[in-house]
C-alpha cells in the first residue's frame, strides 16, 4: 500500500468568486476514489495554480469558476503550463460556461468541461478513463 502510484490532483478556484462548496465536494470525491488531492483554495491566480501544480507534481488540475472570467483564467493556466514545460498536466474545468466558450476552451487545450448538473460519477468516470499518472503515460517526458 505504501509503494504505489497514486493519482495526484490539484483543485483550485481561480477568479473572484469565493464559493468553494463545489470544489470541496469534488475534492472529497477524488479522495474517496483513492487520489491525493491538493486543495489550494479560492481566489487563485493562474500563476499560483501553475507553480503549485508543478511543485506538487500533479497529473491533473481541476478548475472551477463561476465568475464568468473562465475563458481568460482557464486558458491562462494552460498557456503558462506549456510555457513552463509542463503541458502534459491535464486541465479540466467546471462552472457556468456558455456553449460557444466550451469550444474555445477545448481548442486552447482544456481537456474537458463539466457544466452544472453533471453528476460526480460522470466526472470520476471521465478522470478514471482519461487521466493516467504522468510516469505511466508513454512517450511524454
Amino acid at each position: 500500500m505504501e509503494h504505489q502510484t497514486k493519482l495526484r490532483v490539484l483543485v483550485a478556484k481561480p477568479g473572484l468568486d469565493g464559493h468553494d462548496r463545489g470544489v470541496k465536494i469534488i475534492a472529497r470525491a477524488f479522495r474517496d476514489t483513492g487520489y491525493e488531492v491538493i486543495y489550494t483554495g479560492v481566489h487563485q491566480t493562474p500563476e499560483q495554480i501553475v507553480s503549485a501544480a508543478i511543485q506538487e507534481d500533479v497529473d491533473l488540475i481541476g478548475l472551477s469558476c463561476l465568475s464568468g472570467a473562465h475563458l481568460f483564467l482557464f486558458n491562462e493556466v494552460v498557456r503558462q503550463l506549456i510555457e513552463q514545460d509542463a503541458g502534459d498536466i491535464i486541465v479540466i474545468g467546471g462552472g457556468i460556461i456558455p456553449e460557444e466558450d466550451i469550444t474555445r476552451l477545448k481548442g486552447a487545450g482544456i481537456k474537458e468541461i463539466f457544466l452544472p448538473g453533471t453528476s460526480l460519477d460522470e466526472i470520476l468516470k471521465w478522470v478514471e478513463e482519461n487521466v493516467k499518472p504522468l510516469s505511466q503515460r508513454g512517450g511524454s517526458k
Partner: peptide, 22 residues
C-alpha cells in the same frame, strides 16, 4: 493523513501558504 479506508488524501495545509506559491 492518508485515509485508511480509501488510500486517498486531501492535502489541505497548502491552502494557508498559497501566497508563497510563486
Amino acid at each position: 493523513p492518508t485515509s485508511p479506508f480509501t488510500g486517498g488524501a486531501i492535502l489541505g495545509d497548502r491552502v494557508r501558504m498559497q501566497k508563497h506559491s510563486t
